[in-house]
């Protein structure tokens, strides 16, 4: 089923700029649209993340920030579009991507220790059915140490403060030893000390050649935290170096929202239960 295969008027373009770069880009998203229950929440996202950068994803509530990360990871089906990680499909590159979900997404009453959670970052490398070897435990302990939680390795996770829980999540991502880190609001509900520690860690990651994309809420700290920002509100409003893009005008566009038309259209699509077609054929 397809709505759009005929394109008498779309100029047959050479590969867009994005795709030429995608060989080296840690994450390139091409033409991606996401719908929740048939209601589009992200429209035609085109992004090529630069390497060795600390990238902030900024936008109002419901702008689709978390959705963007989840769809990249394949947790939400894409209505259309393509995602490449270091030039290859995500499925082949999973081991190079670490994901830090929102802290509220799990049950912190779960009977595991901090170390157990961090070890989960190693499970895929340990392999199915095999016990966890000493090297993996060592790596996990190092990750805990990096976030300043080595003393809490044996502590049950429900006995940790919010900031400490967030650090544990971070340590789990570190233990994955990935190249691209996708973090969903790592600063939500953490204390000032933790926030400082986390941002220092992220900057370390960046300088060691990793790419870190962070969903962030606090506009005041954007300037000092990130060198690149993505301003998002159902579509990419602006994207580029913080100094150029993080302007009042762009913020107004992001948060002010002249989007009633788009929301109306999205509602209409949802109401009609019109499925936004999935890519069935390659282009």
């Amino acid at each position: 089923m397809s709505l759009t295969n005929t394109r008498p008027e779309a100029t047959p373009l050479p590969l867009s700029q994005g795709e030429e770069h995608s060989e080296s880009s840690p994450l390139s998203i091409h033409d991606m649209t996401i719908a929740y229950h048939r209601k589009p929440v992200l429209w035609d996202i085109d992004l090529d993340l630069p390497e060795h950068h600390l990238i902030g994803i900024i936008g109002p509530n419901g702008a689709g920030k978390s959705t963007l990360l989840k769809s990249v990871l394949g947790l939400i089906p894409r209505a259309s579009g393509r995602v490449l990680v270091y030039g290859k499909p995500f499925d082949e590159q999973r081991h190079r991507v670490a994901y830090v979900p929102q802290r509220e997404s799990v049950d912190w009453d779960f009977p595991v220790s901090a170390l157990d959670v961090v070890l989960m970052g190693r499970y895929k490398r340990v392999g199915w059915c095999l016990p966890i070897g000493r090297t993996h435990k060592k790596i996990a302990m190092e990750a805990l140490d990096k976030v300043g939680m080595a003393d809490y390795a044996r502590r049950q996770i429900s006995q940790l403060s919010g900031g400490q829980q967030q650090r544990i999540f971070l340590a789990r991502a570190l233990a994955q030893d990935a190249d691209l880190y996708l973090m969903d609001e790592p600063f939500a509900g953490v204390d000032a000390a933790t926030e400082k520690a986390i941002i220092a860690l992220l900057k370390d990651l960046k300088s060691s050649g990793k790419t870190v994309a962070v969903v962030h809420h606090d506009l005041q700290t954007v300037g000092s935290y990130f060198d690149t920002v993505i301003l998002l509100n159902m579509r990419v409003v602006a994207y580029g170096p913080t100094a150029e893009v993080f302007t009042e005008e762009n913020l107004n566009k992001t948060y002010g929202g002249k989007l009633t038309l788009l929301t109306d259209a999205a509602e209409a699509l949802a109401r009609n239960q019109a499925s936004i077609h999935r890519e069935t054929k390659s282009e």
Partner: peptide
């Protein structure tokens, strides 16, 4: 016992497990 790791990560954080490719 064999699937201890896999069952644990599934029960604790399903999204993370899926993102890991389980």
């Amino acid at each position: 016992a064999l699937l201890y790791k896999e069952f644990t990560v599934l029960a604790f954080d399903q999204d993370f497990a899926a993102a890991q490719g389980y």
